[in-house]
Structure formats: C-alpha cells, structure tokens
Design a protein around this nucleic acid. Structure first.
Length: 876
RNA sequence: GGGGGAUUAGCUCAGUUGGCUAGAGCGCCACGCUGGCAGCGUGGAGGCCAUCGGUUCGAAUCCGAUAUUCUCCA
C-alpha cells in the first residue's frame, strides 16, 4: 500500500468515527516560548488540554508534520546512522477533547490496525502503564481490562514511567499511555527470541507504532499531580514506521516516502544506495534532512543564526557536510531534491508545492555559503597540522575552528585521522561545555505556579474597540530570569492590551487601582492562547478591580505602522507582481520592517513607485473596515491575503483599507490619513530570494523630514545660501581636489628644494656621504625625503631634525649597503641621539626615528651624529 | 540573549613578536605584439588598511568603543 493511500485511509477511518479532519499546523511554532517546532501531534491542541480555550470539535483527526532534533531518543547527530530515526516525520493522530476515553481509543486503534490494514495480530504487542510509587500512581488496570477483550493477556506488557507515562513538560497535563508495538522480524528470528522480550528494547524491527495517551492529570510546579475535570485522548502513530510495516520493509528509508529522494540523490551523485555503510548513512542523512529543511522554509522559517532558524541551518549544514565528505559532491546539489519532494508530498501538504521555488533558492544559497566555509576551514586545518609540534592537535584549537569558523568537529577529526593526527577530544568537549554553561547562565528562567484568583473565567481581548477597560485578575505567577530578574505574568479577565503577534509588538501601559496604586505593564505576550501581561510589581490586593490602560501614544504609532505594512504589501504586489509574499514582518512604534519574496534588488524607480503608491493611499484617506468573524473560505473568496506558515481558525478577522485586504489580528488606525507620510528608509536582502524593506510613518517620518531639512538648512547656511546646493557642493569637491593636487605639487617642490639643499651639504667622511640638518618637516615628509635621497645616491648617512608642535623629531637614514658592509645601525644611533631631545626611538637598521619633548636638543643631536660618523671613520 | 572571529585595491586574499614608502592574483586603463579557444609583453591608475578614540618616537599590526558581517551556544 503506498504512503499516500495509507495516510488517506487513516484519516477516513476516523472521519467515519465522527472525527473532524484538521490540517497540519505549521512545523514552525510562533506563540509558544517553550518550543521552537511542532514536535508532536498535540502541539496545536495544547491550549485545549490546558483549558485556555474551548475546542471547536471534541473529536479530531490529523496528520501533523513534526520536527525533532533533540530529546531522549532524537539526537540530530544520530539521524541517518540507523534506519528509523528522523528529524521531520508525520504523526497520525486521533483526539478526544473531553469526549471518548480509553475504551474507544483502544478499540478503534485495534480495529484500524487489524481490520482496515489487516496487520497480523500475531505480530502485535501492547503495553500499559505499570504504576509509579513516587507519584503514588496505580497500574492502569482500566486500559488493561479493555485490551484483555481484544488481545491475549500474554501480549499485554507492563511499561514503566519512562515509556508509558506521558508528560508535556515539567508542568501541565499528563497521563498514562498505552502503546502498540509491531514485530516485523522473520519467522526464524521470532522463533529464536519471542517478540515480547524485545518490546521497548530499541530493536529496529520490534517497534512502537502507536502511542495512545490518556490525559487525566495535571502536573503542578511543585511536582504533585491533580486529577483533571475532563479527560482527553491524544494518540500518535509514526507515519513513516507504519509505511515500513505495511510495505514489508525493514527500514523506513526503503518505503516510498524516501525512495524517490534516494533515487534522485543517486542520480545526482552517481553513488548507489546499499553499497557501503558510509555512503548509505550520507544518503539517508540528506534524504531525511532535506525534508525537514524544505518544510520549515515552506512554513516561513529561513535558516539564520538564532533560534529556530539556527536549528534549520544546522540540519541543512549537516546534510551538506555528509554530501561533501562521503558523496564527494563539492557543489550545491541538495536544493535539487526539492522538486522530487514537492511532487511526492504536495498533495497532502500543498505549501511545499507553492513554496518550492523559494525552498530551492534558499537551500542553494545556504549550500554555497557553507561550502565556502568548509573550504576555508580546510585551509585553516592544514595550517594547524603544519604548525603542530606533535601528532596530537589540541582540543582548544579544534574548538576554535568549530566555534569561530563553523568547521564541523567530526570533519576535523576525520581529516586529522586520515593524515595520521590525533585530536584531543576531551579538551574539545571541555571547551564546548564551558560555552554551553555560559549560554545557559545567560538565558536561565524559572517560572512558579499560577496563583488563581478567579478560576472559572477566561481572558478576553477588547483592544480592538477600547484602549482601557475595567477589569480584574484571573491569575498571576512569578518568573525569574538572569537578564530581567524577577517579573510577574498577569492574566486579566478583560484586556485592551494587544499581545505581541503577527509581527506587531505587545502593548505597554498601566493598571490603575482606585487607591492610586499603579502597576506598569512592560510588555504583553501570548502564550498558549492566553494573554500575558508582564510587570515588575504585583497588585497589592490581587482580587481588587482596576482599570487597565494601554499607552495610547505608542499604540497609535504602532497602529500607523501596521496599517502602513498592509499598504506596503499591497504596493509591492502592485509594483513588483503577485509573486510577492510576506516572509516576515516587524511592527514597532518607531519603524516597520517587512520581508518578502522577490528575486532581485529593487531599483530606485521601484522603491519610489512603492512609496508613491502607499502615499497615494494615505492621501485618499481610506477608512478602516473590518469583519471580525468572517469564515476563512469566504474571506479568501473575497480576495483577502493570507500568510503562509500561519495557522488560521475557521473564523478569521479581515482588515480592509480600500482594496487592501488581509487576514490580520493586529491593531490599525481608523483612517490611512493618520499615517501622515510613508518613507522607505532602507531596502536590503536577508536571504536569497528574500528582500527587506524598512520604513517609517507618522511622527517618525515627521521627525526624519524635519531633521533632514534642518541639515539641508545648515548646509545651505554654511555655503552662504547658494541657489543650487548640489552644484555648489560638487564644485567645492572639485576645488578641493584641485587644491589637494596643488598642495601636493608644492610639497614635492619644497621637498625637492630641501633635497638639493641637503645634497649640497653632503660631506664625505671616510667614504660616507654624510649630512645632518634641521629641516622642520613632519615625520612623513622627513621619511619621504630620506628615502628619496637614499634611492638616488649610494653610501649616504642622513640625520634630520625637526620641530613640530613643541615636540622634537629625529630621523636617521643609512644606505643599506653601509648597514650590511660596515655594520651601521640607525636604530641604535637614534636611541643615543634621542637622549638630547629627552625622548626615545627606534626602527630598522637602515631607517629609524625618534621623538622627544625637548626641541632645544636638536642641534646637539645633529652634532653628535656627525661625531659618531667621524669617530667611526677614524677608527676604521 | 551569551561567547569567539573578521573588516586591507573593483573582486579573492597575503601582510609572521609594532619598524612598509602596504603587497599578490584576477579585473580595469594605455601602448605594442599576435588570426581565433580566458593569447603575450610593457607600462599605469586604483587604498584615510571599516569608523572613532587611546598607548607609542612610530600602529594595518596593541588596547577600548561603534558599525557591519561570519560563526558557535541557548
């Protein structure tokens, strides 16, 4: 059964059990500070489990794209080495939010596997939670009883807390799990070792395929468990593994999920999968990683040097490195796989089709730049080996190569061992640990339990219509971080505060109490679908009512920039074409930043056209129109712009200014005329195929123009109010250039004069052309002069003195031939002469300078120079 | 967010413990030679060594700040 059909069958099976089919959420998470990527099917439903929002359907089924790069069984560095670990994978799931529980979850899972897919029951084992003393949890006999009706009892195994008790994190919803394992070994092997002995033993062919989690507890910050009022089911079945089982393969990479990619890699590299262990690993690494990277990019996460983008970069670089080392490909090629991927996955995940071009561009550029890094690193490593005193390369050096230049450590190790060197791994890891500790210290946060004031209420956002509200606390907690110290997070019943989202920054403001007390809100964020207000202090009486007031000044400026962002988006699509898609947005009070897909730098004309377009909309005084609860499909029908990598609900908010229509949750001005004026400050590139525009509006634009005009005014005034400033500056520049040339010529002339003068002063002392003279030139000119004469005449010995700004300068030049044959040393001589001017000096043997604070000593120094030469000549 | 690098000619980069009048290759310009595929020779232009400050007789080189950028860690 091919993978596409399999996926469809799963979803249809649960649809037939009254489940609503839901699209996969983006692989990149936005509103969850604890997680960068979707790493399990449940992520998009987290707020249901936490009770922060009401589920629309109580039964749901989906196939979720997930990404895991770390965790107990998922180290990025291990992926590819075996045949069953992945970074990106699909999780098939069925869900109950306070609806059915263990009975149905168990029966349906069994029905799907044994009746729809017809997997032989002799190959299936199930596990249940055995209980845990520390948490005072009983064995999950409930699940056991249901399984007993379907499976022979000797196939029901007990699992410990690690395998069979699922937790979301340190805190939050959790519960016992029941797993289904499948044994796909040959009959021969099964006869040798019974399958039940291999369950949960990391055997590649006795694998867990389905995990049924029964969420019934909540873990508090102090570690204790409390029973949840409503119970949920969360199941996850690894799609790739299921394909392996259904296609009678022993490796996920042999299923049709991966074989098209592997074939393409074979085509491009000329290697054959299945010949050597090394190339097999490399091929698996690339096939796996290109999926992860392409999906992340399609969902809007570009490789970068921080956060989630950095993880994506690391994954891609790992793939490049394997291709470089083991498949001998020294040029970019991974990007070519995107076509195959798009063809294969486009049906279930259309974003990979529509974003294919962007994925290819981004991956190709990243490949190119990392290949350059590798090249550079190879050179540095060569130097390291050449300079090494022994055959062991120090861990510090290797770490430097890795840390500073991004050269992978295993590649370092490989090359070293090929050339017969050892690497001090221990020291390397010590350095790495040091670095990790530094980072952790800097980023540490700890959060306390929520203190609930008014439990049964859920927060409501009223900020579209009002900037203040009479309200009270629902709950609050303390959060401690190294950087910010102690802060408090407050959740309000009603709030006018806009939480950071959609690129727009969170509101600031104040909570005002009737007794005059104030709590300042520093920032507002969204976490798990609730609005969190961040403050430095707590209200004195948490149960008291108060007025929440948004800082309207900041809000107004931010709103202007947000509206401008929409107009800018519209302008770009108008001027450049509809291939322009938003790739990132930042809306702050003082400026806005907009990243979008476009293949080349904007010309000055294009920038101007975009500016003009936006300013025309401002002049038209378009008023704000919104539809707050329009059906998603209806909004798209109307022509509204939706964003890729954004998860929308069924009901969306449509924001309109004239012909600009976008799905948006942000705050806007009432009329475009409030923007006053729109100015593009900068146009640049963030990645291949992605451009960035930074712009300002309203007060910032006013300030900017005022300043510019002030500058122009002062320039004019300095230039005595010329009619044409530009022309006047240009002629000044020209004049300046001419004058410079003239000065230079004059200087040359002066130098020439002094030169001839000096030359006439030459005295022959013992075969040496000697001169010592006061010239009063600056240090550079003296040097120039000495070198010029030295270049024209042989056997010269020149000592020059000069006074500049109350300081004394001496220079001594001795022809190189004299230095070599007679052993003269200008450096030594100048040191001795320097004493007369109360200074020190030095230089090379043929030219040296000294400086000091006693100009009166110059004549003496010059005299002494002469006597030195005379003395030496009489000696010689 | 926290570390570590880098910034030198249009481009790619050298520049060893401060002592350079700052170099190379490619590119550019001029002239000459040359039947073709990166042809050869000669000559030349092009640099506030990222910016600002400090140490020093002397800084591309050492120190500090800023900007830009790369990289590792979270």
């Amino acid at each position: 059964m091919n993978s596409k059909l399999l996926r469809r069958q799963f979803l249809e099976f649960f649809e037939s059990k009254s489940h609503a089919k839901v699209d996969s959420a983006p692989i990149v998470l936005k509103d969850d500070p604890t997680l960068m990527f979707t790493n399990a099917g449940m992520n998009q439903f987290k707020s249901y489990f936490l009770g922060n929002s009401e589920p629309k359907y109580t039964r749901v089924t989906n196939s979720q794209k997930c990404l895991r790069v770390s965790g107990k069984h998922n180290d990025l560095e291990e992926v590819g080495k075996d045949t069953y670990h992945h970074t990106m994978f699909e999780m098939l799931g069925n869900w109950s939010f306070g609806d059915y529980f263990k009975k149905e979850a168990i029966e349906w899972a069994w029905e799907f596997l044994t009746e729809v897919l017809k997997i032989n029951t002799d190959n299936l084992y199930v596990t249940i939670f055995e209980g845990d003393e520390a948490d005072a949890l009983q064995k999950d006999t409930e699940a056991y009883e249901f399984w007993k009706k379907l499976v022979k009892e000797d196939r029901i195994l007990l699992g410990n807390k690690k395998d069979n008790f699922w937790e979301m994190g340190d805190q939050g919803p959790c519960g016992p799990a029941s797993e289904i394992h499948v044994d796909i070994r040959t009959d021969e092997e099964k006869a040798k070792t019974p399958g039940k002995d291999l369950v949960n033993q990391d055997h590649p062919q006795v694998v867990e395929i389905w995990n049924l989690v029964f969420i019934q507890y909540n873990r508090r910050a102090n570690g204790s468990l409390e029973t949840l009022p409503s119970k949920h089911v969360d199941t996850g079945m690894g799609f790739e593994r299921l394909c392996m089982v259904m296609q009678d393969k022993t490796s996920n990479y042999d299923t049709d999920v991966f074989t098209p990619l592997i074939q393409e890699i074979e085509n491009i590299t000329g290697k054959t999968y299945g010949t050597t262990e090394e190339t097999d690993i490399a091929i698996r690494v690339i096939a796996d990683h290109v999926r992860a990277v392409a999906f992340a990019i399609a969902d809007g996460q570009l490789p970068s040097s921080t956060g989630a983008g950095y993880v994506i970069r690391r994954i891609l670089r790992r793939a490049i490195r394997y291709g470089f080392t083991f498949l001998d490909v020294k040029t970019a090629f991974i990007y070519q796989l995107v076509n195959v991927l798009a063809k294969q996955m486009g049906e279930a995940f259309p974003e990979i089709l529509t974003q294919a071009e962007l994925c290819k561009n981004v991956i190709r550029e990243e490949e190119k730049s990392f290949l350059r890094t590798l090249e550079q690193g190879l050179g540095l490593l060569d130097n390291l080996m050449q300079d090494a005193s022994s055959k062991t390369i120090s861990g510090q050096k290797a770490f430097e190569l890795y840390d500073t230049f991004g050269f992978p450590i295993d590649l370092t190790n490989l090359i070293l061992s090929e050339k017969g060197y050892d690497l001090d791994f221990e020291a390397f890891h010590k350095e790495l640990d040091k670095q990790k500790r530094r980072s952790k210290d800097a980023a540490q946060t700890s959060s306390g339990d929520w203190t609930e004031v008014n439990l049964k209420e859920t927060g409501e956002f009223v900020g579209y219509d009002q900037t203040q509200a009479h309200t009270h606390l629902i709950k609050y907690r303390q959060v401690t971080s190294k950087k910010e110290g102690v802060q408090y997070q407050l959740v309000l019943n009603k709030t006018p505060f806009y939480p950071e989202g959609g690129g727009q920054v969170g509101d600031k403001g104040v909570l005002e109490f009737s007794d005059g007390n104030k709590v300042y809100i520093l920032d507002t964020k969204k976490e798990n679908n609730q609005i969190i207000h961040i403050s430095k202090t707590l209200p004195k009486a948490p149960d008291e009512e108060f007025t929440a007031k948004v800082d309207v000044n900041l809000r107004r400026k931010t709103a202007a920039n947000h509206t401008a962002t929409h107009l800018l988006h519209q302008a770009l699509r108008q001027v450049l074409g509809t291939h322009v898609e938003q790739k990132g947005s930042m809306v702050q009070p003082d400026y806005l930043r907009f990243d979008f897909s476009h293949f080349s730098k904007l010309t000055e004309e294009e920038v101007e056209a975009v500016e003009n377009f936006v300013n025309s909309r401002i002049e038209e005084s378009l008023s704000f129109e919104e539809e707050r609860q329009i059906a998603y499909d209806a909004a798209i029908e109307k022509g509204a712009i939706a964003l890729f990598g954004e998860k929308y609900g069924d009901k969306v908010r449509l924001v309109k200014f004239g012909n600009s229509m976008e799905l948006c949750g942000g705050t806007h001005v009432n009329n475009t005329s409030n923007l006053w004026h729109f100015i593009i400050k900068n146009e640049s590139s963030v990645a291949s195929g992605i451009r960035r525009i930074e712009a300002i509006t309203s007060e910032a634009a006013k300030v900017f123009l005022t300043k510019e005009s002030q500058i122009l005014d002062s320039v004019k005034s300095v230039l005595n109010q010329p009619q044409n400033v530009l022309k006047s500056v240009e002629s000044l520049q020209e004049e300046n250039l001419n004058l410079k040339r003239e000065v230079e010529q004059l200087n040359q002339l002066k130098l020439k004069q002094i030169k001839t003068e000096l030359q006439s002063e030459f005295k022959e002392i013992g075969g040496i052309n000697f001169v010592s003279q006061r010239v009063d030139l600056d240090a550079g000119a003296m040097k120039d002069l000495a070198f010029q004469i030295g270049g024209e005449q042989d056997n010269v010995f020149i000592v020059l003195g000069s006074e500049a700004q109350g300081k004394a300068l001496l220079a001594c030049y001795i022809s190189k031939s004299l230095v070599e044959t007679e052993g003269w040393n200008a450096g030594k001589i100048i040191k001795s002469l320097g004493q007369h001017i109360q200074g020190g000096g030095g230089g090379q043997a043929f030219f040296a300078t000294a400086g000091g604070k006693n100009p009166d000593g110059i004549p003496k120094a010059l005299e002494e120079a002469k006597s030195i030469v005379e003395q030496k000549s009489t000696e010689g």
